[in-house]
Amino acid sequence: MQAFVKTLTGKTITLEVEPSDTIENVKAKIQDKEGIPPDQQRLIFAGKQLEDGRTLSDYNIQKESTLHLVLR
């Protein structure tokens, strides 16, 4: 499924993900596309910070959801 990641600069990245993907996995995909190390990434969805060990389905993130990427 497709999900979108919006950065603070307003850029939107499109990712191909599965509901079973972990947040860690998603961060690795963002690193592949953008070169941002996962340890600098914080992903926010519905106002919550997403934890590495959880999956997209844990957070009820469905296709075409938009996550927000904040860098630390």
Rank of each mutant, 00 (worst) to 15 (best):
M1C: 04
M1W: 12
Q2A: 09
Q2G: 05
A3Q: 05
A3T: 12
F4N: 06
F4V: 09
V5S: 01
K6P: 02
K6H: 14
K6N: 06
T7Y: 13
T7M: 15
L8N: 12
T9D: 14
T9L: 10
T9H: 13
G10Y: 03
G10W: 04
K11N: 07
K11D: 07
I13V: 06
I13Q: 01
L15F: 07
E16F: 14
V17C: 06
V17W: 03
E18P: 02
P19L: 12
S20D: 11
S20E: 10
S20A: 09
D21I: 05
D21H: 05
T22C: 04
I23F: 02
I23H: 01
I23R: 00
E24A: 15
E24R: 15
E24K: 13
N25Y: 11
N25C: 11
N25G: 09
N25I: 14
V26S: 00
V26T: 03
V26I: 12
K27E: 01
A28S: 11
A28T: 09
A28D: 07
K29Q: 10
I30G: 00
I30T: 01
Q31R: 12
Q31D: 05
Q31G: 07
D32G: 09
K33L: 13
E34C: 13
E34D: 05
G35P: 03
G35A: 05
P37V: 05
P37G: 05
P37W: 06
P38W: 11
P38A: 15
D39Q: 12
Q40P: 02
Q41D: 01
Q41Y: 13
R42E: 13
R42D: 11
R42V: 15
I44F: 15
I44T: 08
F45W: 10
F45A: 03
F45E: 01
A46E: 15
G47S: 05
K48H: 12
Q49D: 15
Q49Y: 14
L50N: 00
E51D: 09
D52G: 06
D52Y: 04
G53L: 08
G53R: 09
G53A: 10
R54N: 11
L56V: 07
S57P: 02
S57I: 09
D58P: 00
D58A: 05
D58H: 11
D58C: 03
D58N: 05
N60G: 12
I61P: 03
I61F: 10
I61E: 03
Q62L: 11
Q62I: 13
Q62W: 09
Q62M: 12
K63V: 08
K63E: 12
E64A: 08
E64F: 12
S65C: 07
T66D: 05
L67D: 01
L67E: 01
H68S: 06
L69E: 01
V70F: 14
L71F: 08
R72L: 14
